[in-house]
Design a protein around this nucleic acid. Structure first.
Lengths: 299, 299
DNA sequence: GTGAAAGCGCTAACAC
DNA sequence: GTGTTAGCGCTTTCAC
């Protein structure tokens, strides 16, 4: 092309304020260059970090990301799956609310839309998860090594795979040490449920430490303990799981296991975008060893 | 249409797994039914709540939402503005990183893309913000009414309008009471800066209370105080701003002013989507009175 | 009501 | 290289 022509074209672009229209391009090429991340609650710091991880990878590869919030509702999740199909996204990173609507998911897969589950195991989908069992196991061993003997556990809903895995890791470590938990009771991964379960538990049992399946419940347990007149960590040790950012500001500090949400998002996005994938069906993949961090919560 | 034909069509839809392709529709109608929210950091709970507010309104109106993360970078923000134009979004809710690239913004406006600024005032754009000055004023009066006299202030970067407004509200309330702040020093809205500024300040001045321009810095101040051997709230009162959700879990509790991020997002989205808007240029709009919440932090 | 046809803005293919 | 053309899947219009 003659430099002069080139200059004229550039000038026209400038004057007409031209930008190629993505929707036309998408129609013609049958590729939108958009992926989505569909999660239960973007205002939960764990999920929003995960979303950032997805976005960072997509952005680098020239993809846009739609972040969709199912608001903890399976129905809204299902509607979002429809919308995303119509929207023509090329892949979906899914943090499912319970078991997702597999009919919808399969329709997407048939259209060659990559769907990868993160954090929670979904039957029939490749899953990117942390090593919940291993992390819980390591944390429990750490707690035992500090000399705690009478330990209670607050677990999450048993339909959620992460809750089951963390409980399993805990029980396994105890068993290896030839011990049994004082009690294991079920919460809902919320602050309130942690508070409620701990308050009840502290009345009925004599415990030296409480381990919870996530930080929010652990925080509830701390507050319940202090209201029961117990000093933490002098009278009662408390541990959580997730190592969410604000936990670092909580006083007294919370012992926890780091779950690398950002990296999990990155890995999931990479899987979704990787072309190889279009051939091979993936297996579940573990990220990180579930490192046990900060330990100020224990005497 | 004959019921029989109708049935056949429905059956075909089912069999072919048909969903109308949005990109074709968008191309033909020159409307994508997509809006975007472009913000500095989706993993910040304040912004993610805001994003949820935007999404909820858009979803109800049949619009999809693209959440874009500028990662606190003006450059990335600018690139996102380009992408969003190419993508053909019909409106943008913008939480700007400093002053945004107005050339890009104006190109969007010229194309009749609605751009509304939230939280931070942007010259030349309608802004949805909280009543920072009023809220700060009310909080300061509250603190004064509790009998505190020697008050220090930790402000945010003065380029950010919210920081200026909160400082102004504080100074105004003091002035009305015929007082002056012990000192007012600048942080960066981060935990670390709050910690650092407070630690220094407590050495140099004798203060009864520290007020910070946001919760994160207030939390830093609390930790600095406790490390300096001061009990909070017995020896030193501390107040923040934003009333972020995790602040409710912090012990001792933090006095703060609520900034209704979710509602601000909803209002901004409504503005962006409202058709009237296409005619009239908007003015800045205040949401909420900046209510002063929980007061356990003060004796 | 039903059907046919044009065209949105782009890209891929093919001819020059 | 450069120019032309067909067509992606939908909506709108206009003719029946």
């Amino acid at each position: 092309m003659r430099p002069e022509t080139r200059a004229r074209v550039l000038k026209a672009i400038e004057e007409l304020d031209y930008t190629p229209a993505k929707s036309a391009r998408a129609l013609r090429r049958q590729r939108t260059q958009v992926i989505a991340v569909l999660l239960p609650d973007i205002s939960n710091p764990f999920f929003s970090l995960l979303a950032r991880g997805v976005e960072s990878v997509a952005f680098d590869q020239g993809f846009s990301t739609m972040i969709c919030d199912s608001n903890h509702s399976s129905e809204k999740e299902s509607r979002h799956l429809d919308i995303l199909r119509a929207e023509g996204v090329e892949g979906i990173v899914l943090v499912a609310v319970g078991q997702p609507d597999m009919r919808k998911v399969e329709r997407l897969l048939r259209r060659n839309v990559q769907v990868v589950s993160v954090d929670r195991v979904v039957e029939g989908l490749p899953t990117i998860g942390a090593d919940n069992k291993g992390g819980s196991n390591a944390l429990t061993k750490h707690v035992l090594s500090l000399g705690y003997e009478r330990i209670a556990y607050i677990t999450g809903p048993q339909e959620v795979s992460t809750a089951r895995e963390r409980l399993a890791g805990f029980l396994n470590a105890l068993e290896l040490a030839g011990r049994r938990p004082v009690t294991a009771q079920c919460g809902h991964f919320t602050y309130e449920s942690g508070y409620g379960v701990a308050a009840k538990l502290l009345k009925e049992f004599e415990v030296e430490a409480i381990m919870a399946a996530n930080d929010l419940m652990a925080l509830g347990a701390i507050n319940a303990a202090e209201e029961a007149g117990l000093r933490v960590p002098e009278d009662l040790g408390v541990a959580g799981f997730d190592h969410v950012s604000w936990a670092a500001f909580v006083r007294p500090n919370l012992t926890s296991v780091e779950v690398p949400a950002y990296r999990m998002g990155q890995v999931a996005a990479t899987q979704v975008l990787s072309a190889e994938l279009r051939e091979t069906r993936l297996k579940t993949k573990l990220i990180h060893g579930g490192t046990c961090t900060a330990c100020h919560q224990f005497r």
